[in-house]
Design a protein around this nucleic acid. Structure first.
Lengths: 212, 212, 212, 212
DNA sequence: CATGAATGAGTTTTCATTCAT
DNA sequence: CATGAATGAAAACTCATTCAT
C-alpha cells in the first residue's frame, strides 16, 4: 500500500529540529515540487501524475480533485509546523527568551528544510477554496498567537521591549516565512549560520536586548 | 485615445509620499486587480478584457500577449517604487537615520497604497518569463542595495548596530513587502499609524537605537 | 448466494394480474432504478454497484459488462410481459372482446406496476447493441401481433370495426407503453380506475362498440 | 453570419401543413440528428461539432454548453409545434370536428416531418435541466389542453362521446408523439395515407362517431 | 478599436473495465 | 465476493491567440 493517507495529526514529535522525513506520499511530494516551482494553477494534474509515476486516473484514485491535493499538502504542512513549534516550546526552559529562541529557531528550520511545503502553503492562499483557506488561516494565526504570547511574557518581565506585541509577532513570523523564498541549501552559509543570523534579527524585532 | 502606453520611466516624482495616481491604463488597472485577487494563471485574458471594457482583440491591440500585460504592470510597479524611494532619499537630510526613515517610510507607503501592484510584482515571479524576471530581480536587488548602503553608513557612524548588513536590508525590505499582504485600508489604524509602527520595527531590524 | 441469475423464462404465471414480485436480483433492481431515472448512458457502473451494495468487481462477477446488465433487464422485462399476456389470453373466454380485455388489462397493469422496467425497455432501445435490440424488437412485435390477431378476430365476427388492424394494434400497444411514462402510483385514481379508463380508450381504438 | 440564433417565437405561420423549413442552424441540425439517433448522453460535443463542420471551441462560440444546445433545440421544436397547431386551429371552421381534424392533422404531420426534432423533445426529458424541463412540460401541457378543449366542445354538442376528456386528449397527443418513433418516410404508405389512418384512430379515441 | 467567428492545444475529471490479493 | 489499485480513452469545457470585416 504505497500511498498511505496522512493522519491529520502526525505522530509525536521526538526531535523538533528534525525535518528529515516529510511524511508525504509520492503524489503529494510530486505536487509539492510542481506547485512550488510553477504555482498551483500553472501545474496540470497530468504533470503531477507523471511526476508521481501514476496515470491520471490513478492519481484520482488517491485524491478526489486537484484542490484536494492542495488541501492534503497544506494541512500536512501546517500540522507539522504547529506540532514542531509546540514541541520546541515545550522543550524550552520556560523563560521568555528560551521559549522565543526555541520557537523561532524551529520556525526558521522548518521554512528552510521544508522549504517547498512552506512556500506552497504561504503562496497559494488565493488558490485555496473557502474551507481550506479558513483552516489554513486559523493555523497560521494560532502560530502567530503563540509568538505573541511569548513576546508578551518577555515584555512583562523586561526581557523584551516591544510596543505592539501583535505587530512584532507578525513581523517575526513573516521573517521566517520569507526565508522559504530565498534560502538556498547549496549556498555558502551553513544552515546553522543562517538560523543564527535570522534569529538575531528576530530577537531585535522582539526588542532584545532592550535598550537602556 | 484613452490607452496611452506608459513611458518606461515616469515623469519626475514631485512628492514621494503621494501615490494617488497609479498612472495605469484601464487595461493594466483591470489586470492588476484580477491578478492580485486570483493570480496570473487563474485570470483569463477574456476576464481582463471585460474588466477593462475592451473586446479581446481590442486588448491585443494594446498588448501583444498576456505575458506582456504582466510585464507592463511589473515594470511600471518597479519603476515607480524605485523612483519614489530615490526621491525620498534625495529629500532626506543625508544622515543614516534620515535616509533610512525616508526610504523605509516611502517603501511602506508604496506597499500600502499601491497594494495590488506591489502584491502582483512580488507574488507572480514564477509567472514571469526570463527577461521580465531578470529585470524584476535587478530592480528588487537595486532597492535592497539602496537600503544596505544606508544601513552600512549607519553602522559605520554608530547610528545602527547590525551584524550582517545584507541580511538586515533584506529583512527590512521583506517587512515592507509583507505589508501589501495584510494591510487593510478600511482597518482601524490610520495609514500614518501603521507606517509608524512598521518603521519602528524596521529601525530595530537595522539596530536602532543601538544597545549600550 | 443472494444473486441467483435469472433463468431466461420465468416459472409459470399463476396469476397474470400479479406483478408483486419482480424476480430481479439486487443488481438488476438497482440498475433498473438508475436507468429509469437518469438513462443508461448517464448512469455509471459505479453508481449501479453502490446502489446494489456491491463493489465494482463484485458487480462484474455477475455481469460481464454494462451492456449485459441492460440485456438481462430488458430480457427479463420482455419475457415477463409476454408470459403474463399469454396467461391473460389463455385465461379468457376465447371471444374477441374477452381476449382483448384480458390482454390489454394485463399490458396496462404491467406498465403501471412494472413501470421502471417497462420504461427502460422502451426508452433505451438506442442503447442496446444489435443482438439485444433484435431480441427486443422481436418480442415487442410478437406482442403487437398478438393484439392484431385478437382485433382481426373481432373485426371478422363484427365485435370490432377497425379499418387497419395493424395500426390499431400498434396504437393500442402504444397506449399501454405510454402509461409507464405518466402513471403515478401515489395519484388520486386507483390503479383499477386507471385501468378501466385506459381500457375504454383501447376498446375505442379497436372499434368497440362498432357504430351502427 | 451563418449561425443566426433563433428568435424564441418564429415568424407567423403561413401554411400550417408546411414543415419544409426547419429554421435551424447547422449546429442545431447536427445535434438534432445525433441526439435522435444516439441519445443526448451518448452524443459527444465533439461529434456535434464535427457534424456541424465546426471545431469544438467554434461550437462553444454559439452555445455555452451542451445543455444549451438541447435547450435551443427543444425550445425551437415546441415553439414551432404550438405555433403550427394554433394556426391549424385558427384555420378551421370552428366546429369541434373541424378544429379536431385540423389540430390533429397538424400534430401528425409535425411528428412525421419534424420527426427527429419531435423525437428528441419527447425522449430526452430526463436529460433536461430543471428550467428547460419546466418550459417543455408547460408547452406540452398547453398542447394537450388545446386538444382537451376541443374534445370538450365536441362532447358538449354531441359530436364526440368521451368519458374522460383529459385522458382522451392525452391519448390522442400520445398517438401523434408515437408516430415520430415509427414513421418511415421511405415506407410504402404516403404521408397523406398515414395521416388519414392515424387521424381515424384519433377520432375514435375522442369518440367519433358516437355510438347510437 | 468593436464584432463575430474561429482554432489547436490544453484543462480537470470521469468512464468502463481489469487484476492481484 | 470485497479491497485497492490501476488505466486507456474519452468526456465537457476553456485557454490564449488570430483574423476578416
Amino acid at each position: 500500500m504505497p500511498e498511505r493517507s496522512l493522519a491529520r495529526y502526525p505522530q509525536a514529535v521526538t526531535d523538533w529540529r528534525d525535518f528529515s522525513d516529510d511524511g508525504l506520499t509520492p503524489t503529494l511530494r510530486a505536487a509539492r515540487g510542481l506547485f512550488a516551482r510553477n504555482g498551483y494553477h500553472a501545474t496540470s494534474i497530468r504533470a503531477v501524475a507523471e511526476a508521481a509515476g501514476l496515470s491520471v486516473p490513478g492519481l484520482y484514485h488517491h485524491h478526489r480533485s486537484k484542490q484536494a491535493i492542495l488541501g492534503a499538502l497544506v494541512d500536512a504542512t501546517m500540522d507539522r509546523m504547529l506540532a514542531h513549534t509546540r514541541a520546541a516550546e515545550a522543550d524550552s526552559d520556560g523563560t521568555a527568551l528560551g521559549r522565543f529562541d526555541n520557537v523561532l529557531e524551529c520556525l526558521l528550520r522548518f521554512h528552510m528544510l521544508r522549504r517547498d511545503d512552506a512556500f506552497v502553503a504561504s503562496t497559494e492562499m488565493r488558490s485555496m477554496d473557502d474551507t481550506l483557506l479558513l483552516r489554513h488561516i486559523a493555523q497560521r494565526d494560532e502560530q502567530q498567537r503563540m509568538i505573541a504570547d511569548i513576546i508578551a511574557q518577555g515584555v512583562a518581565d523586561g526581557t523584551f521591549r516591544c510596543g505592539h506585541v501583535d505587530d512584532g509577532a507578525r513581523a517575526a513570523a513573516s521573517l521566517c516565512v520569507a526565508v522559504a523564498g530565498w534560502y538556498d541549501p547549496t549556498g555558502v552559509l551553513t544552515a546553522d549560520e543562517v538560523v543564527a543570523r535570522q534569529l538575531d534579527i528576530a530577537r531585535r524585532i522582539a526588542g532584545f536586548p532592550p535598550p537602556p
